[in-house]
């Protein structure tokens, strides 16, 4: 044991430090252990299942399915959540409403994220007057409170699901644009970007291979939380009669119908659609919270 090299000892020393894991494996492992992420995932999964299974388990035609004899019946074995003012089964309508709420929620935010991130990256990369123009534009959109802006947009274009979706997208864009811009700028100044640039990598390649992957985690977080507020806004528009039009089941519109019978003591017609909104939104908020904890090491101590 006489000829011991430096390297040999170094290797032994290395062996006692922590093994290196891939960052995404670490994230997933932490996420799986994070309590609110667990609860959020369960809730979301539940509503996704409901949305997917509803038409299979209970095919339903909203137009012909009313039954005036059965109107405003309290929960019973036949109608677990009771019936609404037209005698329609509330549970079934909620299940079918999940398709609209989740669909619109995800779709509108997806649209907004793509547009917003593109605008933000362009602004952050270009700088100068283009940056100024784009960001002042976002400031202007942000000066009008989200819900008011969405209402105004729907008011101009006319009520309906498509316009509501568009309106929600528009009010969601500025957040992503700002986020993507600040990431682009902070990363532009970053050492490893400088290194890539000095090696002659082109701008679009830097954007694609360095900036986007690095800004991914805050965007994922904002996406999850964004779906939550999109569902809420959709419900608000529906409640005000500006979203999905009757007779199609949309949670907010269902509530606005039930509100007319507030005095009749039909608590079930009010409680269950509201709970559906709250729990699905809560699911996305919980997951978003968990993701933020797990993905943002700065907040972790």
């Amino acid at each position: 044991m006489n000829d011991i090299t430096f390297d040999e000892i170094s290797q032994r020393a290395e062996a006692i430090t922590t093994p290196v894991r891939s960052p995404w494996a670490v994230v997933l492992r932490r996420l799986a252990r994070h309590r609110s992420a667990q609860m959020g995932s369960v809730l979301i999964l539940f509503f996704v299942l409901v949305a997917v299974l509803a038409p299979i388990v209970y095919p339903y035609n909203a137009i012909v399915d009313s039954n005036p004899v059965n109107r405003l019946k309290p929960p019973s074995a036949a109608h677990l959540f009771g019936t609404d003012s037209l005698g329609r089964d509330i549970l079934v309508r909620i299940a079918h409403g999940a398709r609209i709420s989740l669909g619109v929620g995800v779709l509108s935010v997806l649209l907004a994220a793509v547009v917003g991130v593109l605008l933000g990256l362009i602004a952050g990369q270009a700088g100068g007057w283009l940056d100024n123009l784009l960001m002042r534009g976002m400031d202007i959109l942000m000066a009008v409170p989200d819900l008011l802006l969405a209402i105004v947009i729907v008011a101009i274009r006319g009520p309906g699901l498509g316009n509501a979706l568009l309106a929600i997208s528009v009010v969601t864009v500025p957040g992503y644009a700002r986020l993507a811009r600040s990431m682009a700028i902070s990363l532009r100044e970053n050492d490893f970007i400088m290194a890539a640039r000095s090696l002659g990598v082109s701008t679009s390649e830097i954007l694609r291979t360095h900036i986007l992957p690095n800004s991914l985690s805050p965007i994922i977080v904002q996406f999850t939380l964004g779906v939550a507020s999109a569902i809420l806004e959709m419900a608000a528009l529906g409640f005000l009669g500006l979203g999905q039009q009757p007779p199609w089941p949309e949670w907010g519109a269902m509530l606005s119908d039930s509100a007319k019978f507030l005095g009749a003591g039909a608590w079930w017609a009010l409680t269950f659609p509201g709970l559906a909104i709250m729990l699905s939104v809560l699911g996305f908020n919980l997951l978003g919270d968990g993701l933020r904890d797990v993905l943002d090491p700065r907040l972790k101590r």
């Binding site: 609110s36 939550a228 809420l232 419900a235 608000a236 409640f239 907010g252 509530l255 039930s258 509100a259 507030l262 003591g265 608590w267 009010l270 409680t271 659609p273 509201g274 909104i277 709250m278 729990l279 939104v281 809560l282 908020n285 919980l286 919270d289």
Partner: peptide, 18 residues
């Protein structure tokens, strides 16, 4: 507080009314 931000306030209002 998370439930609070997840709640549609018009629903909360209606529930309080009822």
């Amino acid at each position: 507080s998370l439930v609070g931000v997840s709640m549609p306030i018009f629903w909360l209002g209606l529930m309080m009314q009822s």
